[in-house]
Design a protein around this nucleic acid. Structure first.
Length: 434
RNA sequence: GGAGGGAUGACAGAGCGGCCGAAUGUACCGGUCUUGAAAACCGGCGUGGGCUUGCCCACCGUGGGUUCAAAUCCCACUCCCUCCGCCA
């Protein structure tokens, strides 16, 4: 949620920033008008309330003094005012609720350095990395045996069974088997182990309440992208960001505790409604995938460092896996609702000949913390924390990129050495390994 | 799933219709005393909102209701504890 106080103080700044994301100025003017109306009604209601409280105290005193006449008279007066107060409060709450609903739909202000743009085509590539780059090696060219899509490799090696997945849960629910399954598990273990020096490992619930989904900004705006269990008022989490952001909801943290760094591996569920065709073959786009998330609650001063650290950790995983990747600074049109700045990591996968998004590192400022009410004690008073998070990494596409990158001429796949401690003898996958 | 008990400030814990935003203790912060520390003593010590910055309003698990007046009474829900049942 954006800062209403800031909107009052510098409406032009807020309007200009949001205009970059396509929020019309008259929408903001309407919000400002609602805010003004709300405060006026609030004053009316509170004034009446104060009078009722005052009269009630007098009634109590008159009763104590056995002055029944005065008590009766004051009671009647207070009752009339009470009726007025009820009406005034109702009017105030109606406008207040409308204002809140409006605010929940307004996205975060983009950071000044976020490029303007409509969609993913306007994202700005920051840099690329590939194995051997530092030693002067050119951008990799890929051999013919690497230009086989992972769904064919997976089928041939018996480690990916999309048909069985579809039989169980419908299309876009992949089923990994044998060494393929172990690879998913290995990647999570590999990443979690790498974060354990600075990030507390969390295993949160996979479902979250509607209120929890509101905090991160996934609701009310993106309910169509989410799986809901209506009967229980629960939603399947689309990312561990959801439970981690609400882990300290409603709390006032000690400044000395910040930054609080958390990591979690969870299943992530996404409807991906509207997605179909070439984007969705194999495991390029799936309804359920595993992901390790890095997360930090921090002070505004710490947020840049927290962001850089998460980005660096995500990158270091890709380097150690020997995958070619690039960084994109997302434009205003491609950023998520709650983000102020996002950098995506995309892996190049030769079999499908495409860049695949495997991580999204975002700084949210206090936007999520305002919704989740996560604060910290400063020298004088309290302030909202900043939240930062990023994937390290989403495994479905990394899984695909690994198979395609490391496929050998004989059809087997020799995974990078960093995975050997986790994969054991299956670090080289052949048709008979699984 | 059944029966019972509970939810109050950082924590413990009183209050069970009328200056109660809330006693008291602990913790914490400041001061006195002390070479220093401890002890003792004195003072302070929740969050949010509004505006005329001094005041007003809200918050005692959540949401409704009763009343001139609700932490206190009534209803529903949530969570926690104990026992029984079921179950990885």
């Amino acid at each position: 949620m954006i800062d209403l106080v800031q909107l009052r103080r510098e409406p032009d700044v807020v309007k200009a920033a949001l205009a970059r994301r396509g929020v019309a100025t008259d929408v903001m003017d309407a919000v400002i008008a609602m805010d003004v109306a709300h405060r006026e009604l609030l004053q009316d209601a509170e004034r009446l309330r104060a009078e009722v409280k005052f009269l009630s105290r007098l009634v109590g005193e008159a009763r104590r003094d056995k002055d029944t006449d005065t008590a009766t008279e004051l009671t009647e007066k207070s009752r009339v005012l009470g009726d007025e107060e009820r009406v005034a409060t109702e009017a105030m709450e109606r406008v207040g609720a409308a204002l809140r609903n409006e605010l929940l739909m307004i996205p975060n202000l983009p950071a000044p350095d976020v490029p303007e743009g409509l969609d993913e085509n306007d994202n700005v590539e920051i840099r690329r990395w590939w194995p051997g780059m530092e030693e002067g090696a050119p951008f990799p060219t890929f051999a013919e045996h690497q230009k086989v899509p992972h769904w064919d490799i997976g089928l041939a090696l018996g480690i990916l069974d999309l048909e069985a997945g579809a039989r169980i849960a419908g299309s876009m629910f992949p089923l990994y088997r044998g060494a393929g399954s172990r690879l998913v598990r290995s990647l999570s273990a590999f990443s979690l182990d790498r974060q354990s020096d600075a990030y507390e490992e969390i295993h949160p619930p996979t479902f979250a309440l509607t209120a929890t989904m509101m905090s991160t900004g996934h609701l009310p705006k993106s309910s169509d992208d989410m799986y809901g269990v209506e009967r229980d008022g629960l939603w399947a989490i689309p990312t561990a960001e959801v439970p981690l952001t609400s882990m300290h909801a409603g709390e006032i943290l000690d400044e000395a505790r910040l930054p609080i760094r958390l990591t979690a591996e969870t299943a992530c569920f996404r409807r991906e409604s509207g997605a179909a065709g070439r984007d969705t073959r194999g495991v390029l786009r799936v309804h359920e995938f595993d992901k390790v998330e890095l997360f930090a609650y921090c002070t505004p001063e710490q947020s840049q460092e927290a962001f850089d650290d998460i980005l660096a950790r995500a990158e270091s995983l890709l380097r150690d896996l020997g995958l070619t990747y690039r960084l994109l600074l997302l434009c205003t049109g491609d950023m998520g609702t709650s983000a102020a700045r996002t950098i995506d990591l995309e892996v190049f996968s030769p079999g499908v000949d495409r860049w695949l998004e495997v991580s999204s590192v975002s700084w949210f400022g206090d936007y999520q913390a305002r919704r989740a009410q996560v604060r910290y004690r400063t020298g004088e008073g309290t302030a909202l924390v900043h939240t930062v998070n990023g994937s390290a990494l989403g495994w479905a596409r990394v899984w695909a990129a690994l198979l395609e990158t490391y496929r050998r001429a004989d059809g087997s796949v020799a995974l990078p050495g960093v995975l050997a401690p986790y994969m054991g003898a299956q670090n080289v996958i052949t048709a008979t390994t699984s």
